Simulated scan of single mutants.
Amino acid sequence: MSADDAEARLRLDSYLPYRLSVASNAVSGLIARAYQDRFGLTIPQWRVICVLARDGRLTQGQIVGRTFMDKVTVSRAVQGLAARRLVDRSEHHADGRSHMLALAPEGRRLFSEIAPLALAYETALISGLAPEEVTLLRRLLTRLQSAAAALVGEGERPPIG
């Protein structure tokens, strides 16, 4: 495909990466306002709380791997949560360069208060979809995420063909 052909065919409103970004920003913005207004949490802080609630004690590096957030974002989220005494830090006996993180009792209480709200938002967002559409959407999003990860592994080159 020539550059002229690509230019003629590319329309932002139908370009899938753009549409995914817009949808993600709309959903994240909605949820961010609710978490910030009601609980004083950022989205990264909420993700850290959620992962620690599910998985227990983790290092920051493990949280990065589970959330796909960058190291700086996770570090700032953890610092804010620790300052509010929502997360406890303890020594990592196997690796002196890192700490183990766990939800403090107040973090667990906050999670138990926010989790029903998060699930209610999800229910409201998918209420116009049939159950099989939700299943398909989850499967397609997983496949797109895997394809993006594969492209990053290839140096972000688009496939040739």
Rank of each mutant, 00 (worst) to 15 (best):
D70H: 09
L103R: 01
A149F: 09
G61L: 06
E132H: 07
R38E: 02
V48L: 05
A23W: 08
G155T: 02
A118F: 10
Y18I: 06
A120Y: 08
E133I: 13
R66W: 04
F39L: 03
L30E: 14
R38S: 04
V64Q: 14
L20F: 15
S28P: 14
A34C: 08
A94R: 12
A150W: 08
V27W: 14
T59S: 01
E132W: 15
G161S: 14
A115Q: 04
L117K: 04
T67M: 06
S2P: 01
D5I: 13
E156G: 03
L117E: 15
N25W: 12
L136F: 15
L136G: 12
R84E: 08
L144Y: 11
P159M: 00
F111T: 02
A149I: 01
A120D: 13
R109A: 15
I63M: 05
L119Y: 05
L137T: 10
E156C: 09
G65Y: 08
R38Q: 10
L110G: 02
S75M: 04
A94V: 03
R19K: 05
V22K: 08
I49L: 14
A149M: 04
V27L: 14
L140Q: 13
G65D: 06
I31A: 08
V51F: 06
Y35N: 03
E113T: 05
L10I: 08
G96T: 07
I43N: 10
A124K: 05
D13I: 14
L129N: 09
R84T: 00
L117C: 04
A150G: 03
A148M: 04
R33I: 12
D37W: 11
A32Y: 10
A120G: 08
R33G: 13
Q60H: 09
E91H: 05
T73S: 13
P158L: 07
